[in-house]
């Protein structure tokens, strides 16, 4: 995600731009911020999902072997089943591949996933904050410009 976001190739002082350009920049910033916060929410969701996976793996334990469970066939249709293998679970590792793992391995897998997402969330948080600061600065400049409209005749 680092390829197409070189936002300032040449340095331009924001104070030099006129209002029209400023509002353009502002709209662009707003779009970026929106996109970033959306991604943030999505990552949060994914993290929560992995966390609940850890809990679920915790329920697959030898004490629960042979107990009756209800297996969902659809959202509203369940059939009774028995937990026959309390040692292994099958984990979706992405791109259509599934790996049979022991409970400990699975827990570890999900924990690294959660951790990985956390680092992503942290960097994302930082970028969002920076964008927010840019935004605030931009709005300040815009307001300053609005308050002294055409104080000096427009320079070429």
């Amino acid at each position: 995600m680092a390829s197409t976001t070189s936002s300032q190739p040449q340095q331009i002082n924001v104070a030099d731009l006129d209002l029209q350009q400023l509002s353009d920049v502002r709209r662009q910033l707003e779009e970026e911020l929106n996109h970033l916060t959306n991604s943030f929410a999505q990552l949060k969701q994914a993290q929560a999902k992995f966390k609940s996976c850890i809990e679920n793996v915790g329920e697959v334990k030898p004490q629960n072997k042979g107990t009756t469970i209800l297996v969902p066939l659809t959202n509203s249709l369940y059939v009774p089943g028995h937990l026959s293998d309390a040692e292994n679970v099958i984990v979706d590792v992405g791109t259509g591949y599934y790996v049979k793992k022991s409970r400990a391995q699975a827990t570890k897998y999900y924990e690294t996933k959660v951790e990985y997402i956390r680092t992503n969330l942290d960097t994302l948080q930082e970028t969002i904050q920076k964008k927010q600061e840019n935004m605030n600065y931009l709005i300040n400049v815009m307001q300053a410009k609005l308050q002294q409209p055409q104080a000096q005749p427009s320079k070429a």
């Binding site: 590792v93 992405g94 791109t95 591949y97 790996v99 049979k100």
Partner: peptide
């Protein structure tokens, strides 16, 4: 990046980890 994650995951498999493909 998804495939790279899978590759990383495969790199640390033990022989007891059976691999399945969703068809």
């Amino acid at each position: 990046s998804e495939n790279e994650m899978v590759k990383k995951e495969f790199a640390q498999l033990t022989p007891s980890n059976a691999v399945y493909k969703l068809v």
